[in-house]
């Protein structure tokens, strides 16, 4: 009786998801290599064919966010598909993308002056199903604008990443997820030098999923989840007490 009930619940969950327009792309899955983080997403897979929102508040975190996004894009890029990176005042340095498994020549950069133009370009790009990922960097995104983007991807099944740098308000938008990435000190285990990029990844909102916070490191061409160190917290407490 018990397994049958479990099956029914899963079946119902799938139906609810399909009613909520969460389709995913048939036959395509993103292998993030995150282990149990995938359980935070609906259907236990990273939602493709949707728009994701990333928020960063300072330059250092913006770099961390772009690094994390580049890692995701590298995993997502198929052999034949190109990526559009649309921004104003871009500081991204293409040669660095090699580190995240992206051939920089497969990215087309659109450098614009106004936020309005960026929005138009993102929407047009999201409608083009020959692309795999569209990345847009802008600061303000209203609910209406985000809904237009969401409607565009529902037709074309393109994945969109919107990186909002220093937004005035963190308003509600129609994106499936909201992320905040911040940098963490790299681990060297007593060795000299600077280690692999390590981030504190906060999934603040996810539609039909469970938000959470994790620590992730980019090493050996893939994401690696790191268990948070218990002693570091006690150390902090001790310092505060002292």
């Amino acid at each position: 009786m018990q397994p049958a009930k479990h099956d029914i619940i899963q079946q119902l969950q799938r139906e609810v998801l399909s009613l909520q327009r969460h389709k995913g792309i048939s036959g395509q899955q993103l292998h993030t290599g995150w282990g149990d983080i995938d359980k935070a997403f609906p259907g236990h897979t990273f939602p493709l064919g949707a728009v994701h929102e990333f928020i960063s508040t300072n330059k250092e975190n913006a770099a961390a966010t772009n690094g994390f996004m580049a890692g995701l894009v590298g995993k997502l890029m198929q052999q034949s598909k190109q990526v559009l990176w649309i921004s104003t005042k871009r500081t991204l340095f293409p040669p660095a993308l090699n580190m995240f498994g992206i051939a920089p020549e497969r990215i087309v950069f659109i450098d614009l002056c106004k936020q309005k133009e960026v929005l138009w370009a993102i929407e047009e790009a999201l409608k083009c199903n020959a692309l795999s990922v569209v990345i847009g960097e802008l600061s303000e995104l209203s609910f209406t604008e985000s809904r237009r983007l969401q409607l565009a991807v529902e037709q074309s099944r393109v994945t969109g990443f919107i990186h909002r740098y220093n937004p005035r308000t963190e308003n509600t938008v129609a994106c499936v997820t909201r992320w905040k990435i911040s940098h963490l000190a790299s681990e060297m285990n007593g060795m000299p030098g600077v280690g692999f990029p390590k981030w504190n990844v906060a999934l603040l909102k996810v539609r039909n999923g469970r938000p959470g916070t994790w620590q992730i490191e980019w090493s050996a061409g893939g994401f690696k989840q790191i268990a948070p160190q218990a002693f570091s917290i006690s150390e902090m407490l001790q310092r505060k007490a002292g």
């Binding site: 920089p104 087309v108 450098d111 020959a130």
Partner: peptide, 26 residues
């Protein structure tokens, strides 16, 4: 695919200027 992307880029270039599109090589 290339054609679809080229057409998208043409639209972008037509509206926002050819100078806004960049692709980099080493």
């Amino acid at each position: 695919n290339g054609t679809a992307i080229a057409e998208l880029l043409d639209r972008i270039a037509g509206k926002l200027g050819v100078g806004s599109i960049h692709r980099y090589l080493p």
